[in-house]
């Protein structure tokens, strides 16, 4: 029973982690809190739904929606953050402008899709074969979602560690001015960061939509604030920390439900986050861990 709960937590945590790495990546590089991340998460889920409904095979719809989310991320940066960056606007103002973009994205989605819940009708999500492994049961859909999230996080880790782009991103995160002096094209690197962060957030949205086979306008609400807790737990800006934080959250949530504590679950989560911030403002894994990601 507990093994099954932990497995469910692992599945849930992988998606939380995927959402949180994009959230924290933008913070690590730009020191801003991007409150439009959850809106892009939701937009991507709807995009995948539309693609799938138009007959695109699910894996392609997933990739297409993630790319679309990445492009939305670049646009988000151009509209809401780049002009503010140019005049050193501090931390409050970008936070607000990202709320503005989130409102706009939400309004557009409502205009296109209305308020009704949507389901993926293709791909046989509800009739997926069940795998039994000793005491554990799970569906092939859950397994595929889990693997997709893990693969994407490994790709991100590889990009940050082993590619020129990754080195540039880490350099900008470390010290924007010094990186520019060394010849890093700031705006292009930041655009790439937004593409990566938002496509991962979008991918998390599609996977969440597939996991519950439900896409709704407000699906981004809970994960927006829980994502905050996750990146605080992991240390803001730390990609590794966000992954670990995501899995911890997944496990804690499923265990809380299993032990009938689900009503107080979020209070505990935010209580832990609050105490952690107060006791250790840089999180469990330190702020600048992006360097070593």
């Amino acid at each position: 029973m507990i093994a099954q709960q932990l497995l469910n937590g692992l599945f849930l945590g992988a998606v939380y982690a995927l959402f949180a790495v994009g959230y924290t990546l933008v913070f690590g590089v730009l020191d801003i809190l991007n409150l439009a991340h959850a809106a892009i998460f939701t937009a991507a889920a709807f995009a995948a739904f539309s693609l799938a409904a138009a007959g695109v095979p699910l894996p392609l719809a997933f990739l297409g929606a993630a790319v679309l989310a990445g492009i939305m991320g670049i646009l988000l940066d151009r509209v809401a953050f780049a002009p503010l960056r140019a005049r050193n606007a501090g931390t409050l103002v970008p936070l607000i402008s990202s709320i503005g973009v989130a409102i706009i994205i939400g309004a557009i989605l409502r205009g296109i899709y209305g308020v009704d819940e949507r389901h993926f009708t293709v791909g046989g999500l509800d009739t997926a074969p069940v795998i039994r492994l000793g005491p554990l049961t799970f569906t092939t859909v859950e397994l595929t979602i889990f693997l997709a999230a893990i693969v994407l996080m490994l790709v991100l880790s590889w990009i940050l560690r082993a590619t020129t782009l990754g080195r540039r991103i880490r350099a900008v995160a470390e010290d924007r001015v010094a990186a520019a002096l060394l010849g890093v094209d700031l705006e292009r690197t930041i655009a790439a960061t937004f593409f990566i962060a938002s496509s991962l957030g979008g991918a998390a949205g599609v996977l969440t939509g597939l996991e519950y086979n439900s896409v709704t306008l407000d699906m981004g609400g809970p994960i927006e604030l829980k994502g905050l807790a996750v990146i605080i737990l992991g240390g803001m800006g730390s990609v590794t920390g966000a992954v670990i934080g995501g899995f911890i959250l997944g496990a804690v949530e499923t265990l809380a439900i299993a032990y009938g504590l689900s009503a107080w679950r979020d209070a505990v989560l935010f209580g832990v986050m609050f105490l952690l911030l107060v006791a250790r403002p840089t999180g469990l894994f330190g702020k600048r861990a992006l360097r070593a990601a």
């Binding site: 935010f270 986050m273 609050f274 403002p281």
Partner: peptide
């Protein structure tokens, strides 16, 4: 008192967290 050492975004997040706790309670 507990948030006395927090600034900027960290203060924002801690207080958002406090708000969520109040709502859940």
């Amino acid at each position: 008192y507990p948030v006395r050492r927090l600034r900027g975004v960290f203060l924002a997040i801690a207080t958002i967290g406090f708000g969520e706790i109040v709502r859940v309670v």
